[in-house]
Design a protein around this nucleic acid. Structure first.
Lengths: 232, 232
DNA sequence: GACCACAGTATGGTCAGACCATATCGAACC
DNA sequence: GGTTCGATATGGTCTGACCATACTGTGGTC
């Protein structure tokens, strides 16, 4: 088999063609979140393919957080374009962690990078800190490790939100999601959460008075407190 | 319809059940990249669902870079587990940029964060810089803006690789992929690439002699040179 | 006129079965 | 021993049907 001079008639799968067509429509027609895609049967007829292929393309788009499907009838039914990368990133991290293609060490390292950067940005921009304060209050009222981690996550995601970069905020939320069980375990092992709370107060204060360097240092020390085993 | 006391019989779609089952197998059986999943027809029979549902689940897993399907017969055929998050992240970024759910400003901001962090890590770890040097040589031989960006991308991805964090390296590659056209345009507008090349030499030197602060500064200035419009 | 019950209908979700394309395996043949 | 070619296992696609869901419109009731 020399393979010379022969070109395969079909290189892409049908559902990939459908994906390309839908993507083309999005860019050419300037579709944005909230717009509706044609119904599956209609799209299949327009593109001259079976409904199965359209459906497989829809699964891909749904997985990537680009469309949201809803059965039934009416304005909200059908495939609606959205822009929610969060769950896609969360699924991606969870599965690759499960496959050992990624280690928790790397996830936490990424989180550390983001958090230091975001804290500096938030401090530099004198960002709104009301969400941070609310999360801090929630931590005080937390009755279990799960609840504590819940509000702790909200606090740290609020820092990422305050950076003003939606991509970084989305990555941050996904990282925290995939770390949740690990974080709960870390909190349980730690026992006393007062140190963590004090760290948060210090981070919040640094951001509020626009001290970027202090915010970065506070975040860095906080992570060392929360995950001592990774910083030895 | 008061809805009290009634529980929906079915909350999840069939293919989501399939996904959960496959994920369970991965974690419980400790499957890793390279292992094979049962054939679609076989899986459908085992789980008591139709092949379509299995296929939709496969599409999701393939989209997330967790399986790779290959027709035919033999050891390499069928659905093989992999761990390639790169194309998933690239697709995600491209589509969300197209939907205006993300702006190039945010992508470049994320790149800046990663690059500074990775340069510091690489310098601190005295990482191997042979890949960096090779990319630098490629840039000198580049005859077009596309080619230049190609090797420029390789250089910057090599920095991320040198950080030793696969997640960050994967994000970096995806960011660069989704920026490619934008980068080519920026290089064309710039005309003279000697400044960029000099920046690279400086970054490489800083990493080689383990000067983290200098490496961060060099990266920061480099990005300001490459995308002046974003740093005014 | 306002309200409500119900049939109609458009949508996604699932299934069954068929056929095609591809790639290996294996037996028959030279 | 090598080659050829059919058998077979796998993913890819199509068709057509049916179910579940949720709005829409119609008609009746008050």
């Amino acid at each position: 088999m020399d393979g010379s001079g022969w070109r395969p008639v079909k290189r892409t799968r049908t559902f990939e063609d459908v994906l390309a067509q839908i993507e083309r429509r999005i860019t050419e027609d300037g579709l944005t979140a909230g717009d509706r895609l044609p119904a599956e049967r209609q799209l299949a007829e327009q593109l001259g393919v079976s409904r199965s292929s359209v459906r497989e393309a829809m699964r891909v788009l749904e997985t990537l957080g680009v469309v949201s499907s809803q059965a039934g009838r009416g304005p909200d039914a059908g495939a609606v374009l959205t822009s929610r990368p969060d769950s896609a990133l969360t699924d991606l991290l969870r599965l690759h962690l499960g496959l050992a293609g990624l280690e928790m060490r790397e996830v936490i390292g990424t989180r550390q990078m983001i958090e230091q950067w975001a804290a500096a940005q938030a401090a530099g921009a004198r960002a709104d800190t009301s969400a941070l304060a609310a999360a801090l209050a929630g931590m005080d009222a937390a009755g279990s490790a799960e609840e504590f981690v819940e509000h702790d996550t909200a606090f740290h995601c609020a820092i990422a939100d305050a950076s003003g970069n939606r991509l970084i905020a989305a990555i941050m939320r996904s990282l925290r999601d995939s770390m949740r069980i690990y974080s709960v375990e870390a909190v349980r092992r730690l026992g006393d959460t007062s140190i963590l709370r004090a760290d948060h107060v210090r981070i919040l204060a640094a951001i509020e008075r626009g001290a970027a360097d202090e915010a970065v240092a506070a975040v860095s020390e906080h992570l060392a407190h929360a995950y001592p085993s990774l910083f030895t």
